[in-house]
Structure formats: structure tokens, C-alpha cells
């Protein structure tokens, strides 16, 4: 039987993750990572954020926001390390560790979002 490559799947996840990260991560970093901690904008209260995250669409949104960029990272960083730092001989363990981390993050996101009270 012909061995089928995982390349189309990892490439599709890489592309989708790149789009999600490009469109959505900058505003998240700007708001939650800079504007709120620095007090440039008044941060929403716990109850207000909880009400927002309780909405099913917000949960789906946050799941996508967390999962796909991790697969983008796994695909891109895998080549950054193995080609960039010339350690092609380690590409086997690198693939397992990086994609394992992306899958772990995805499962964790689903678990955490499911368990929001």
C-alpha cells in the first residue's frame, strides 16, 4: 500500500493558523497584554468577561484562537529549528514534540472552555 503523507494536513493547519494568528492575536496582545495591564484602558470586570466567555460562540472562537496558531507554530518552528539551526537529523523527535505540544494545547483549550462555570 502506498504510504500517504501528512503534509497536506499539516500545511492546511499551518495556513489556517497563520490567518487566525494574523487577524486576531495582535488585538488580543494589545488589549490583554498591554492596554489593560498598563491601565491605558479600563479592563472589563470578572463578571463581564465571564458572561462573554460563557457564550457558546465565544467558546468556539477561543478554541480556534488557541488551537490553530499552535499548529502554525509547530509547522513553522519545526523547520526553523531543523533547517535554521542545521539539526535535520533531529527532525523525528522535533516533529513528535512540537505537534504533541500543539495537540496538548488544543485538548487543554477544549477542556478549559468546557469547564467554564
Amino acid at each position: 500500500m502506498e504510504k500517504r503523507s501528512n503534509e497536506p494536513l499539516s500545511w492546511a493547519l499551518f495556513g489556517a493558523g497563520g490567518i487566525v494568528a494574523a487577524l486576531l492575536l495582535p488585538i488580543h496582545i494589545l488589549l490583554f497584554g498591554l492596554a489593560f495591564p498598563l491601565g491605558l484602558l479600563g479592563s472589563p470586570s470578572y463578571q463581564e468577561l465571564l458572561a462573554l466567555v460563557r457564550h457558546p460562540l465565544t467558546r468556539i472562537y477561543l478554541f480556534i484562537l488557541c488551537s490553530l496558531p499552535l499548529f502554525h507554530w509547530a509547522h513553522r518552528f519545526r523547520y526553523t529549528i531543523s533547517d535554521g539551526l542545521q539539526v535535520k537529523h533531529l527532525s523525528g523527535p522535533i516533529v513528535v514534540i512540537f505537534y504533541g505540544a500543539a495537540i496538548y494545547g488544543t485538548v487543554l483549550a477544549a477542556y478549559l472552555l468546557w469547564h467554564i462555570p
Partner: peptide, 14 residues
């Protein structure tokens, strides 16, 4: 290419 590390970092923060 290294930008993906910062992406992953902020996913962890999220």
C-alpha cells in the same frame, strides 16, 4: 519565522 514563538507564547497566556 521566529514570530511563531511569540504567537505560541500568547496562546499560553490566553
Amino acid at each position: 519565522d521566529f514570530s511563531c514563538v511569540f504567537m505560541a507564547y500568547f496562546v499560553v497566556v490566553t
